[in-house]
Structure formats: C-alpha cells, structure tokens
C-alpha cells in the first residue's frame, strides 16, 4: 500500500504542467463557458429559462450533448495517450523500471492517474455547467436563481453512465500507448475507431463498437437490440478485457526500456 501511494504521488506529479493537465481543464470548462457566453448574448431569455421547472435538465442535457458526442471521446483519447506515453516522450521507462517498484504498481498507478484526470474533468464540467446555469443571476437583477430542485440523483447517475461509457476508450488507448512508442499510432487508431463508431451508429450491431457508448446514450437505447440486456455491461466488459490484455503485454515485454 505504501508503494502504491508513493507511485501514485509520483505519477500525479508527472502530470504537473503537462499537456494532459491543460487538456482536462480546458475540456472540462469549454462547453459550459461557450453556453454561458450564448446565454449572456441572449440575456433577455434568461429570466424565463431560469424560472422554468426543467432548467437544470435542459441545460445539463444540452451541455452533455456537445460533450458526450464529440469532446469527451476525443479528450479521453488524447489524455490517455498523453499520460501513458509520458515515459516514452521523456525516455524515462528505463529509469522508472530500475526504481524499486513492482511492475503491477507502476501499471496500476498510471491507470489510476488517467482515471483520476478523467474524474477531475467530469467534476470541472459539472461545476462549470452549474455555474453556467446560476451565474447570470449574479450579473442581472431581473434574473433569479433557478427555483426548481437540483436533480442531484439524476445528475450523478448520468455522470456515472458517461464515465462507464468512456472506460473502453481509456483501456484501449492505454493498451495502444504502452505497446507502441510512436505517439501517432494510439492517436490515429483512437480517432479512427471513434469515426468508425459514429458511422456504425445506425448499424444493427453497432453496440459491439467499443468507442460508441457515449453517443449511444443519446440514441435513447438502453438495451441491446431486441434483448433486455443493458448495454452498459458492454463498456464494463470491454474495459476489463482491454486492461487485462494490456497488463499481460506490459508484464511480458522483454525490453523494458
């Protein structure tokens, strides 16, 4: 446990000032900030919008629509590859592998840091979306804070589903980034798979595509085809499968430099 904590701290330090770190912050804030600017631009609509009972659901859905369909998968592809490849870019695998850390701890720490960054992105996005809905009340006297109760449970559940939908992308990008030294391979493969998933949205068996699930959330489907099988099991299964393969490949690599 002591080693895991030490390794996690070290991995977290590596993200300091890194492109991945800035990407998470920018990615988390971008959509809510754009929507906020839009609201300010059409400020005459704000009083009615904030008074409506569906104000939270309406704006959270709008923000998630842009985020989940495009920005989130792209961001996850980039952040996972950037974090996983920090050792390749700095030529530091050999130093890390001569540190007194078990390989399993190194693997687990890297994956945990990626998931933590993803979680941080979610938190920022939610806070910024909350701000997007409530901030106009601070600037305009005729605008009130939304009176409708905040749908805390629904929002948490929505976030959990999107988080789960992202896990196959994290796991597969992690696998590619550990396997290939060339940064373009995981990025290219990731974007390619994402585009393939978009094309496969209307395909009967589209649910088998591992990068499709965040878009699937918006299609109104919750089951696979005509079955009663909840499709959210698939990202969980894919994540476990890809992580397992990735761990075996990492562990059995003959050259750890």
């Amino acid at each position: 446990m002591k080693l895991l904590t030490a390794s996690l701290q070290a991995e977290w330090m590596k993200t300091k000032r890194s492109a991945a770190w800035w990407l998470v912050i920018t990615g988390g804030l971008l959509i809510p900030v754009i929507l906020l600017i839009g609201r300010f631009y059409n400020h005459e609509l704000i009083p009615a919008e904030n008074a409506a009972p569906i104000v939270w659901t309406k704006f959270y859905s709008r923000a998630w629509n842009y985020m989940g369909n495009l920005l989130l998968p792209m961001g996850v592809i980039l952040v996972t590859s950037l974090v996983a490849q920090v050792e390749v870019r700095n030529n530091t695998w050999k130093q890390l592998h001569t540190a007194p850390l078990p390989y399993s701890i190194i693997f687990l720490s890297k994956l945990t840091v990626i998931l933590s960054l993803l979680l941080l992105g979610f938190v920022l996005f939610n806070l910024a979306t909350f701000g997007m809905i409530t901030l106009p009340a601070v600037f305009y006297q005729d605008v009130f804070f939304p009176k409708a109760p905040f749908p805390f449970k629904g929002m948490l559940l929505g976030n959990a589903k999107f988080f789960l939908d992202m896990l196959p992308i994290v796991a597969f990008q992690f696998l590619l980034s550990l396997q290939f030294r060339n940064f373009l391979i995981p990025i290219g493969a990731g974007f390619g798979l994402y585009v393939a998933s978009m094309i496969g949205m209307n395909w009967k068996y589209g649910y088998i595509l591992p990068y499709i699930y965040s878009s699937y959330e918006f299609s109104g489907k919750s089951t696979i085809g005509a079955t009663q099988f909840n499709f959210h099991w698939l990202p969980a299964i894919y994540c476990l499968l890809f992580t397992g393969i990735s761990y075996i490949i990492y562990l059995t690599k003959a050259d750890k430099t």
Binding site: Q9, A10, R17, N90, T92
Partner: peptide, 18 residues
C-alpha cells in the same frame, strides 16, 4: 532519463517519493 517539463527539484521530488 528526466521529465523535461519539470524542474530539477521536481524531478528529484518525484523519485524521492518512490
């Protein structure tokens, strides 16, 4: 083998933790 986006002290701090 150094993390080039970090300072000398930060590189050492990272290994001090390990």
């Amino acid at each position: 083998s150094l993390y080039l986006h970090l300072t000398a002290r930060e590189n050492l701090l990272l290994y001090q933790r390990i």
